[in-house]
Each structure stands twice: as C-alpha cells, then as structure tokens.
Design a protein around this nucleic acid. Sequence first.
DNA 1: CGCTAATTTGAGTGACTTCAAGCACAGTGG
DNA 2: CCACTGTGCTTGAAGTCACTCAAATTAGCG
Lengths: 233, 233
Amino acid sequence: MKNIQNFPSCEECIAKDHPVFKDLTPEQLDNVNYDKACNIYKRGMVVFQEGHRINGFYCVFSGILKLYKTGIDGKEQIIRFAKDTDIIGYRSILSSELACTTAKVIEDATICYIPGDQLHTLVTENPAFAMKLMQLTCKELGEANNYITDIAQKTVRERLAEILLLLKERFDLDENQVLQISLTREELANIVGTATESVIRLLSEFKQDRLIELQGRKIKILNIAGLKKIASF
Amino acid sequence: MKNIQNFPSCEECIAKDHPVFKDLTPEQLDNVNYDKACNIYKRGMVVFQEGHRINGFYCVFSGILKLYKTGIDGKEQIIRFAKDTDIIGYRSILSSELACTTAKVIEDATICYIPGDQLHTLVTENPAFAMKLMQLTCKELGEANNYITDIAQKTVRERLAEILLLLKERFDLDENQVLQISLTREELANIVGTATESVIRLLSEFKQDRLIELQGRKIKILNIAGLKKIASF
DNA sequence: CGCTAATTTGAGTGACTTCAAGCACAGTGG
DNA sequence: CCACTGTGCTTGAAGTCACTCAAATTAGCG
C-alpha cells in the first residue's frame, strides 16, 4: 500500500455507491487503490489550473471544489461544482488536451489522484465502466446545453432563482432549510454570469419577498415554489 | 441489403475518415450497414424532437441540420450544427433519456438511422470505438463550457463576431470568401442568444466597418483579423 | 504573549450609463 | 403575398463606478 497515512481507501467510495467505480472488478479496484495518491487540500488551494497539462484525474473523497474558466479580464465563470464521489479532470486525459478549467477548493477537501493510464486501461478493459463514464459525460453535456439556453434567454433574476434551486438539489438543505454550501456573492455572480452588485440586490429582493432569508453567506430557502415560479422552472 | 435504393453505404463515410466509425472491424461495419435505414430529408423537416423518445442515433451523410432547444415562450436556442459524418442523438441512447434537443434540417440532407442496440454493442465490443465516442462527447462538452463562458461574459457584438468565425471554421468559405452556410437573421440570433433586430443592426455595422459584406443571406468575410479582434479571440 | 491598530475582504447602497430588447412600421424579394 | 429584412424610437434591465460599513485577518508593539 502506497498510502500509509489514514487516507481513504477506494472501498469507502464504493460503499457510497460510486457512480463509475462500482463496476470495477476487485482486481481493477485494487490497481486503482494502489496507484492513487491522496491529498488534503485547504480552502483556496488549486488542484489543477486551466491551460496546464494534467496526467491523471481526481476523485473527490470529501469537501467541495468549484470548476471555473477564466474569461476576458480575469472574470471567473463557474462551470460546475464537485463534491464527494465526483471525478474531475478526466475529460482532459481522455481527449489528451490541456485542462480547460481551474479546480479550486471552496471547502477543505480530501482528493485522490489517479494516473491517466489507469483510466485508459479501465475504459478498454471494462465496457461497463466505459459506459458509465460515457453516461456521466453525456449528463454533464446535457446540463451544459440547458445552461446555455437559460443564460441566453432568461433574465439575471430568473437565473439566480434557478441557481438557488439547483444548488439546493445538489447540496441539500440542513434541518433549518439552510443551503449546505457557502458561497460569496461574487461566486454566486460567477455562476449566474452577472455582476456581484446585481446578485446582492436581487438576493435582498428575494429576501423582501420572503423567498429566502440571509445571514452572511448562509442562505435559508423559505419558499421553493416561489423560486420555481420566478425561475420559470 | 435492406436499402435497395442508391443510399450511401457506410464505406463512403469511412472514406471520409469518419471520426468514430473508422475504428470498426469490417464485420462490425457490415452489421451497422445492414441495420441502418437511410432517408432523405428536405429543408425544414424535423429528424427528431426535444422530449421525444428516440431508439437509435443518426449519422449525417450530407446536408446540414441545426440542433436546438426550445426555451421559454418558444424561442429557439441553437446548440450546434451537424453536417456530413456527424452523428447526432447518440447522447439520448447512451443515457437512455428523452431527446434534449430538436434536430431540424436547414439544408437538404441524407441521414442514416442506426438502432440504439448497435451503439451499445459497439461500445461494449470495441474499446477503440468507445474511446473515440467518449472523446467526441468530451470535445462537445468542452465547446459547451466555452460557450457558457462567452455568453455569460461577452457582449452581443463580441459573440456575433465570434460566431461568424466559428461558422467559418466549421463550414468554410467558398472561393469568394462567402460563408458556406446560409442562415436567416433569426437563426443567427438564436445561436448568439439575442434578438433578430440586434443581429441585423450589428451585421450592418460590421458591413460598414468593412469586416463583412452582405447580399441576402450570403455573408462574405472580408477581415478575419478584425472580427477576431472584436470577438477578443 | 496578549491586546489594540491597521489592513484586507466582503456585503451593501445609490447614482449614473449603456446595451440591447421590444414595438411599430416600411420595404423587398422569392 | 407572406416571410424575411431593415430602421427608428423608447424603455428597461443590468453593468459600472464610487463609496460606506462591518467583519475578519494580520501586523505591530508594549
């Protein structure tokens, strides 16, 4: 075993019904487990950077990352988030391109690195795995296409309401209906594709309309139906 | 042979260095060739519709289609185009979801339909094919992510210039520098994500600035560097 | 050390500007 | 003749700028 520290074993991820790895044979899983290198990343750390070469992919064990592209004059556009059992960076290895996004930690994370040739081997040797991976890519592609349509046709107000609902789906609410992901106003703006000030103004409108409650970065969702209506979802 | 008419054989597509089919064994290709059903589609015809179930995928032999999603109040958002050797609809079979876009012909097309189980068989039996298909999906995903960033951050003017350049890459220019795809102003607007009037105004601005020339739907590209500058490409 | 002081960072507000959408209408050409 | 193109005008949504305030970090110093 390479990782002598108490780093996670792949079995722990499988136990969570891992979307792509659960189809591996015990032997294949062993190989991955042996080859992988785990690391702890603190908030703000960059796992990989847009435009750089990456030779493997990453499997998130815990924590949350944002994946973003840097547009003109350095403005971030957040493409998606990754949390436990998500894999990131696999796109670049498959198409042997440079990373097209930057992955930055927004909640302290434990992440395993798996060399790229493992991925190639698995795709060739395990059709079920290949299928799952392909389905994952297709799902992401479908979501991306949806978002293109939204961003092109909906107003900032509609999009912000929609993003709040999507974040709720992906990160859930706690027992007090508080969104279980903490983002700055600027980060919210970088998802929605707008200015920070606009997000601030719209959030307080939503608050006034009793759709949400705000205390710092905690967002409490009060009226899901109301948000859905605004998002025309 | 099922198709008694003079419909294209798969070999003709292979001859064009088909992006995913070229990795098939002769036997596999034979199977596809036998199972496929070809059809001629006229401009305006719909190959498949958003929200409908499709049980196979389509391989474009000739012609051009637009793939679009229908947003709120029926406004089209064109996601991509398909031309010869492109395959469409494969996403829905892989993830066994309903079609998430509508495919409509904009230039008379010959299109082959291949049943979905063929795709499953090929992915499982031919790792090289699986790999190619995955790379194709990844490429599309990368482009989608780029477009999200653009549409979220760039002005309509910048995006229109960029789209003209992208169309030039994809459909080439003829000997007179005329773009080899003919779109209505509305269709252009539905790619860029703006109003038809805005496209009209901006196109005539571009014309005034000697970047392009217009004669009906024919767009002649005069100054590529200039367009690149506007698109901040 | 511990306790301010100083600096940074993020949230929030108001005034102003501008881009682009929407509407109405006039050509025009296949 | 109808769908498409083109133009002028108006309005509104959202971006930008300039600033305040609060909280959180870091530095400074007795």
